[in-house]
Design a protein around this nucleic acid. Structure first.
Lengths: 193, 193
DNA sequence: GTCTATACGGTGATAGAC
DNA sequence: GTCTATCACCGTATAGAC
């Protein structure tokens, strides 16, 4: 990525993405965005209608990227359990939290259908993808057929999103990892009844 | 609760608690606090050193209350599984999120050891309480002895905290409930292997 | 397309009258 | 103890020069 060669518009989007992740929507000011991007006030209002418009572009970009990363981990070889394990254990900067999920704690995001939509769609897509994998595992006998794919998928995604909360509260990734291990133990094939 | 008879200090704390829950720390201004409490600027700076000091008092109060509520649900009759189920299914206004957990997404809270401490302590206490109950369940044979109490407790608390994220993203409590059902299915005693 | 100048209301805090 | 007045700075947006 050649930062120096990025267009002004791209610099604005990148700077906004970083700040939304670090400080959320209400905690991110146009001034801070411009400062980090190294551009003047006018450029932002030339390329975007305002803060919400720029934030929407930034959120969409972040959402796309997350979906692609998750898809990469969930696709490929391995049993359903192994692919879910790969998702749960994938490399993360746990203390930074989820760049998409964290937006749900932002009052202005939740209050706006437009801003909330990409967040909702992204988490929903990941949930659906996980649910399909759980169903695969049921067919293959790796998971009990009594389980509901949608419900297990919700539990998996919630464990990840909540793991960030616990980790950030304590200032260390330990609780995230513990929750993941706990969930994997409950999901583990052939575990003692 | 006799709002009309509350002291000015109590009115400030109550108003701050509400706003922290609704809008978080960065989204809550002294002005909004005073307006909602119906007091003037000076009163706040008489009783508290400033916004962080008032927020700390509010957070401590909310944390105390949450711990008491959780303790009430987790204490009492029923097997360990049943008490955990009671905790997971307890009445909640899911879309409002957790008044303590949501603070972990606030950059200024996480950046301050003083403000983060009550959040950390509260979530940690709940986790420890859950872990003990899981251990009880292992002793009684309700849960497999292969499970780690601390890890299962982390998974349970994470499912709750992450459930709020999923629910708020979609604007409906459905995903929270689904995650809870999924986790309960995984925890259920005597389930088919 | 990018910049600086300007605007108006909000933020967080202090001073001092009552 | 509570109020209003005041303050310097920030948040968000517009206008208009280059």
């Amino acid at each position: 990525m050649y930062t120096g060669r990025m267009s002004t518009e791209e610099r604005l989007i990148r700077s906004t993405r970083e700040l939304l992740w670090e400080r959320g929507y209400v905690g991110t000011s146009p001034r801070a965005i411009l400062e980090r991007a190294g551009v003047g006030q006018g450029s932002m209002y030339h390329h975007f209608k305002g803060k919400p418009d720029l934030a929407l572009a930034a959120i969409r970009r972040t959402a796309e990227e997350l979906r692609a990363e998750v898809e990469a981990v969930l696709t490929g070889p391995g049993t359903p359990y192994e692919r879910i394990e790969g998702y749960l254990r994938r490399e993360r900067d746990v203390l930074r939290g989820c760049p998409v999920g964290r937006l749900t704690m932002d009052p202005d995001i939740v209050a706006s259908d437009a801003l909330r939509a990409p967040v909702d769609e992204t988490l929903d897509a990941i949930r659906e993808r996980l649910a399909g994998i759980v169903e695969e595992g049921k067919e293959q006998g790796e998971f009990p057929s009594s389980l509901d794919g949608e419900e297990i998928a919700a539990a998996i995604l919630a464990t990840v999103q909540g793991g960030y909360v616990l980790a950030r509260a304590s200032g260390s990734p330990g609780a995230f990892d513990a929750g993941v291990r706990g969930l994997l133990a409950l999901l583990a094939p052939h575990r003692p009844a």
